[in-house]
Structures are given as structure tokens and as C-alpha cells.
Design a protein around this nucleic acid. Structure first.
Lengths: 142, 142
DNA sequence: GTAATTTAGTTGACAAAAGCAACTTGAATT
DNA sequence: AATTCAAGTTGCTTTTGTCAACTAAATTAC
């Protein structure tokens, strides 16, 4: 890998860090933090234990535990003990959780649309192709 | 913009958030935080006041001020008053700051190389093309 | 040309985000 | 049965970041 390639990747990383900061702003208009939103999203997508969340988000388990407790206290998620392994608790969104997530998604979608507002419509598909290219080549090897 | 396009962008955003977390690990092997590293990098790249840093990184000015003071106390940067506007202080890396940054860059470069280790070498240029595509189309419109 | 406003940066007090380590309970290993 | 390991919780602490008040200098408005 050439010096210039590395330079370009690092430049993109800085660039995209900014983009992510912009699009993450959606959470400011809800009363959720980015992490809370992400957790609800992932639970909705099929993640169903704290431990899986841990592996995915690579955060401290104590911290995750607390955030989950907060979401539970707010009535957005519920926990049910796995009868095959009493240590594990399955996570699920409550109806209110689903409602909250729907709103979060609506706002996050809007942020993406705003981001693309000034983009030439003909360039949208090529951009997404570029994203998919990066994603498939850089497949998470952790 | 179609629903599916938005979905794909959001998926890429989650994906690339992970990538960034991985590559940001470089700072763990130095005694600098991501922000300190970033600040030294940007000063080296020509940013030369706290105010410019603020606009770039969009963080609180009190916070930036403190981080700069810490870097100054550690002898990594120095400040010199602008004689044309006594309120502003120009920032510059000290020789030790340059040395520290060189080490940070070495490690950050290594992280990128690690990330690309399992990538088919023939795909490196196409990936970088894809990154450039995204960057030029999504030009920071804040 | 002086008063009012704005701007760059600093500081104190505080809140939010995240990590560490000890602990509990249950499961798996020997 | 005893030991080790795994999932999740809790207390305590550190790190990261915000808010608001402040100083000093520059700019604008009268």
C-alpha cells in the first residue's frame, strides 16, 4: 500500500467523521442520546441480549447495563429471562419503544435527505455504489 | 431520494462508524487522546488559532482552550500573540510536538495498513476512488 | 472620538459519557 | 463436588464535554 493511499484514506476518515457528526445531530431533537437510539435500532434489528450489544458496540458492559436499565425504566424496552440459561436476558422493544424508534428513524432519515439535498440527483446512485464498494471490500475483519 | 437509498446510507454510516473506531485505536498506544492527536495534526496542517480549531471541530471553546493549555504545558505546542490583533494567539508545534506527531502519524498509518491487510491489492485503488467519489459529491455544505 | 457591541480566549462549576473492578448468580469444566 | 467461566449488575472513578461568566481587545454606531 502506497504512502499516498494511506494519506487518502486518512483524509476520507477525517471527512467522514464530520459527516457522521452532522447526521448524528438528529438525536438532538429527540430526548435520546445517540447510544440509546442505536441500542433501540439494534434491538429492533434482532440483537437480543446485552452481551451481543457489547460485542457489536464494543463498550463497557457496566455502561451498557446502565443504559439498558434506563431504557427499561422509561418503558421503552423490556427484559425476559432466557429459560435455557437463566443468566441471559432477552431484550425487546415495548410498543412505546417501537413508537420512539419510528420517530428516531423518521428524523435520522430526514438528516440523510438534508445531507443529500445539494447533491446532483443523478449522483445519488453512484455515491451509494461507492459506499457499497467500500463496505464489501473492507468487510469487517475486526 | 428513495427510501432504499436512505437505508443504504444509514447502513454505511453504521459500518464506517465501526471502521473509525477500529482505526482510532492508534491513540491507545500513545498517551494522547484522539482529540489531542487531531489538534496537533491540524496545527501541523496549517490551522493556527483556537478559533479556527473550533470551527473545524465544532467543540466548545472552553474545552478546546483547556486541551490547548494541556498541550502547551506538556511542551508540545506554543502560543504567540498576533501583533495585528492582540486577542488572537497563533498556535504552533514545538520540536517535541513535531516529534510526537510523527509518532502518532506512524501509528495511524500502521492502523490503516492493518485495516487494508486482508484487502485484495488490486482493490485498493478502486476503494480510494470510491472514497474520493463520496468526498467530492458530499462536499461539506455544513 | 467615545459608548456600545462583538470577538478571542480563559476559567469555574457542573453534567454526561464511559471505564474499571468487585460482585452475584448461574452454567460449564475437571 | 469444586473450580472455572460467562452474563449481567453495581459502586466508584475518570474522561469528555457543556454552560455561563469573565477579561481584554477590536469593531461598529452614534
Amino acid at each position: 500500500m502506497e504512502k499516498e493511499d494511506i494519506y487518502n484514506v486518512r483524509e476520507f476518515d477525517r471527512f467522514y467523521t464530520n459527516i457522521l457528526q452532522l447526521t448524528d445531530k438528529y438525536h438532538l431533537h429527540t430526548h435520546f442520546t445517540i447510544l440509546e437510539s442505536r441500542i433501540m435500532l439494534e434491538i429492533d434489528r434482532g440483537i437480543n441480549t446485552a452481551n451481543q450489544l457489547l460485542n457489536l458496540l464494543k463498550l463497557d458492559k457496566g455502561y451498557i447495563s446502565r443504559v439498558l436499565k434506563k431504557l427499561e425504566n422509561e418503558g421503552l424496552i423490556s427484559k425476559t429471562t432466557d429459560q435455557n440459561d437463566l443468566r441471559v436476558k432477552f431484550l425487546q422493544l415495548t410498543p412505546e419503544g417501537h413508537k420512539a424508534l419510528a420517530e428516531i428513524n423518521r428524523r435520522a432519515d430526514n438528516q440523510i435527505q438534508e445531507l443529500f439535498q445539494k447533491v446532483d440527483p443523478g449522483q445519488i446512485k453512484p455515491i451509494i455504489q461507492a459506499m457499497k464498494k467500500i463496505q464489501t471490500e473492507l468487510i469487517d475483519n475486526n
